[in-house]
Computed example of a mutant assay.
Amino acid sequence: MIQYANDADAGKPRFDPPLKAYQNTMPHDGKGIARIAFRASEGRLWAYRGKRARVLAMLATNDDGVTQWDCYPWHTRLAASVQVMRDDGIEIETTLEGPYRHARYRLRTPGTLTMQGDEG
């Protein structure tokens, strides 16, 4: 039987994309924010925590929209979060693009984003 050395014994660096994704935070991704609230221009307020909060922050700050690839690896079911936000009354547009018809989501409800820390 042939024995192979593992990557650490062979001196190869360990490839860990999820770890890298969590080390490189973006200012709009909501990481480290306890709650994100979105107030529509007519006054209605939505507040989310966790993955939905990060998705809402990305939708509110990216004019080009958000795709599943933008949320990988921390969120693998973007369409489910978008559907919950739609059910709550947030207007989100879906466009299909590319030869494989992947979805791009854009926030269509005008308003402002409020990020609140752990105390808020």
Rank of each mutant, 00 (worst) to 15 (best):
P110I: 03
R86F: 03
E97F: 08
S41Y: 08
R52G: 05
L56H: 00
L96I: 08
A80W: 07
E91N: 07
D87C: 03
Q3I: 13
R77P: 02
G11L: 15
L78M: 10
V55R: 01
S81F: 08
Q68N: 06
E42H: 07
L113D: 11
R52H: 01
T109S: 12
R52V: 01
K20R: 13
D16W: 10
D9F: 15
G11S: 15
N24Y: 13
P17T: 04
Y4L: 09
M58W: 00
L59K: 02
S81A: 15
G120C: 01
K12A: 15
A34R: 13
P27D: 04
E93I: 09
L45A: 08
M26V: 10
R54I: 00
T61C: 07
T114L: 15
E97P: 01
H28P: 00
M115D: 03
I33Q: 03
K31I: 02
A47Y: 00
R101T: 12
R39G: 03
L96W: 13
M58R: 00
Y72N: 02
M58Q: 00
P110D: 11
G11Q: 14
D88E: 09
G30A: 07
N24I: 14
W46L: 05
D29F: 04
A60K: 00
D118T: 13
T61I: 01
R14A: 15
Q83P: 04
D16S: 14
V66A: 08
M115N: 06
L107I: 10
V66G: 05
C71D: 05
M85T: 11
M115A: 13
V84S: 14
A40M: 06
A40T: 14
A37N: 03
L19T: 12
D7H: 09
P110T: 10
G111M: 08
G89D: 09
L56Q: 02
P110C: 03
M58Y: 03
R54D: 01
G111Q: 08
A79E: 03
A103I: 07
A5V: 10
D16Q: 11
V82M: 14
P73C: 01
K51W: 00
P18G: 06
L113A: 14
G50M: 00
R39D: 03
A37M: 03
G120D: 11
H75I: 05
H102W: 14
V82N: 12
